[in-house]
Design a protein around this nucleic acid. Structure first.
Length: 573
DNA sequence: GCCGTTTTCGGCCCGACTGTTTTCAGTCG
């Protein structure tokens, strides 16, 4: 198994943490952290770039030294410098740094003075009251460490965006109902529409700052107030979700919104531009000397650094500033561009609504079409359709369509890709359908080579139009199966097939990086909900969020096409 | 360790809050 970018990123991250604890030059530490962040979100595999002899120092943040280390890791899977550091210190110290209240400096003191090098020893030292005796420590920090160790066992977890929305809505309603509240908005990764959320960052403008904070900490769902100041507070909700709230004056709203939306990397890049122009950007505004020259709106912040407005979904420092500079920002696809949904299920298999109910729900959305793509027979658990039942469903769809004007149900199937890459239903019947979506549900554990070959073989069949949930991942639960996605994308492009961005918030498969890669090679993506009930059609907006994070424009999305154009696009002959 | 329309040295994003101090260091985002 080749070294993946995430492996290299993890090694650099650990290097950074251990160097930090050791007291190394903080900028050297930052260089490792920057590199780790860069690599973890990088769409091409470094191992392939190394194999191709490409110059890694072309990447911003990677110099001669780090390029050499990357090559070494790709070649050997190891980094001797990290092993030497682990030898000198202890890999457990990295875990310690994740506890609240413990950063590199305090971990260093605990390690040096008490000889504590594991979480178990840390717990013992804290319980014996030895932490509080250390200089710069006290009873509070000691208690916090014990508390943190308890939480740590639960493991850190990020909420899926859809779950975060459910928790955020009542809190937002509660805050907005307060007296004198102007703007109340969730910033952070939530606003950037990242697929998972670590915490919520809420921004409020209001004249009476103290009142906002008071109202916030007295929300009924607050389990613990972690910090509380004049303009900022952090609480832990009963669900375990951490929420930060900041209050800023109205004149700073845009600057604060920009600041707290992030990402951190994007903000740093914007601030660097400001410095080059002799300005300073912080959460209160853009300043020349001590005079505020912008900050009421986000637009004004970008203008001050000579850029057009950049949509939150793009703010990851993955080239959006350069694109903005060049006037080449994408016109991101919007929910209103979507003409229909190309993946849905009914009661005939494992869905919960009838054909008619699904059609009505799609019509209410103003769609021009909805593809009914129930499972094929192999998925017996879901009562997958055989030929006879599929023919029966097709007849019922024809009957329904006769009643509709300006809308049609598309006759389709989600046909299983069998172990050898053949399809679960014969071509004769697949040819009769408007749309064939193919997907993998079984034999997920094949080798990378076999899985890739299997999927490409399925697309060799000219009946197949769309590869559904291409990587099979379930966010936070199941990793993608081993496969060469780039090769599959290339194969799809050559064959006139499309890949799906499954909009179900548990999947969001393809992810943002893959979408961007598809766009780069001219491969269109179908954003589909995989709805199993009428209300699931609303998942479309999560798909659109992810598509926007992947820089997709309307013309990169298959189902922005009206039916007649879509029909032509699906024609593989 | 990286980087360069103030370049190969000397910088590197910035402010709030907390706990432990008695003016500040460490952590966090």
């Amino acid at each position: 198994m080749a070294i993946q970018n995430s492996d290299i990123a993890r090694i650099f991250q650990e290097m950074a943490d251990l160097l930090d604890i050791e007291g190394a030059n903080p900028f050297r530490v930052r260089a490792y952290r920057n590199a780790a962040r860069l690599l973890s979100g990088f769409s091409r595999e470094l191992s392939e770039m190394v194999a191709a002899g490409e110059d890694l120092t072309e990447l911003s943040g990677i110099g001669k030294d780090l390029a050499g280390k990357i090559e070494e890791i790709v070649r050997t899977g190891r980094l001797p410098q990290l092993e030497a550091l682990e030898e000198r210190l202890s890999p457990d110290l990295v875990e310690m740094m994740k506890l609240p209240g413990l950063g590199p400096k305090r971990v260093q003191v605990i390690y040096r003075r008490l000889g504590v090098s594991s979480l178990g020893e840390l717990q013992e030292a804290a319980e014996k009251g030895r932490i509080r005796e250390l200089e710069g420590f006290g009873a509070k920090i000691e208690a916090e460490i014990l508390e943190g160790l308890k939480e740590h066992r639960g493991g850190e977890r990020r909420l899926k965006l859809a779950e975060a929305e459910k928790r955020a809505e009542p809190l937002l309603r509660y805050l907005k109902a307060g007296e004198g509240m102007k703007n109340v908005i969730i910033a952070g990764s939530f606003r950037r529409r990242q697929e998972t959320i670590g915490d919520l960052d809420i921004l409020v403008t209001c004249r009476k700052e103290a009142r906002v904070i008071e109202r916030f900490v007295s929300y009924e769902d607050v389990r613990k107030v972690l910090s509380k100041g004049g303009t900022r507070s952090t609480v832990l909700l009963r669900s375990g979700l951490q929420v930060d709230l900041r209050v800023v004056p109205q004149v700073s709203y845009g600057a604060a919104l920009h600041y707290f939306t992030g990402s951190k990397a994007h903000n740093i890049a914007v601030r660097k531009r400001a410095i080059q122009r002799g300005f300073k950007v912080n959460e209160y505004g853009v300043y020349k000397e001590s005079k505020r020259i912008a900050g009421r709106t986000e637009q004004s912040v970008y203008e001050s650094v000579g850029l057009p407005y950049i949509e939150p979904e793009l703010r990851e420092n993955r080239g959006e500033l350069e694109a903005a500079e060049a006037g080449a920002l994408p016109r991101l696809v919007r929910l209103s561009d979507i003409q229909g949904d190309l993946h849905s299920h009914t009661r005939d298999t494992d869905g919960q609504a009838s054909l008619e109910e699904m059609a009505e729900a799609a019509r209410r959305k103003g769609y021009a079409y909805l593809a009914v793509t129930d499972h094929s027979r192999r998925v017996s658990m879901a009562k997958g359709l055989d030929e006879r039942r599929l023919v029966d469903q097709m007849a019922r769809i024809d009957a329904l369509n006769a009643r509709f004007k300006g809308f049609r149900l598309l006759k389709g199937i989600e046909v299983d890709i069998l172990r050898d890459g053949s399809l679960d239903l014969p071509d004769e019947i697949l040819r009769e359908l408007d749309l064939v979506v193919a997907s993998v549900h079984y034999d997920r554990a094949l080798s990378r080579e076999r899985q890739t070959a299997r999927i490409i073989r399925a697309m060799d069949n000219p009946c197949v139009h769309i590869l559904a949930h291409p990587t099979g991942r379930l966010i936070g639960e199941r990793p993608p199966y081993e496969m060469d996605l780039e090769k599959i994308m290339q194969a799809a492009l050559e064959r006139g097939c499309f890949l799906e961005l499954n909009a179900c918030p548990d999947r969001l498969d393809l992810d943002d990086q893959a979408c961007r890669e598809a766009k780069g090679m001219g491969l269109r993506v179908a954003v589909s909900t995989d709805a199993h009930r009428a209300s699931d059609l609303d998942f479309m907006r999560f798909g659109i969020d992810q598509a926007r994070r992947g820089w997709l424009e309307p013309e990169n999305v298959l189902n922005t096409l009206p039916w007649q154009s879509l029909r032509k696009a699906l024609d593989r002959r």
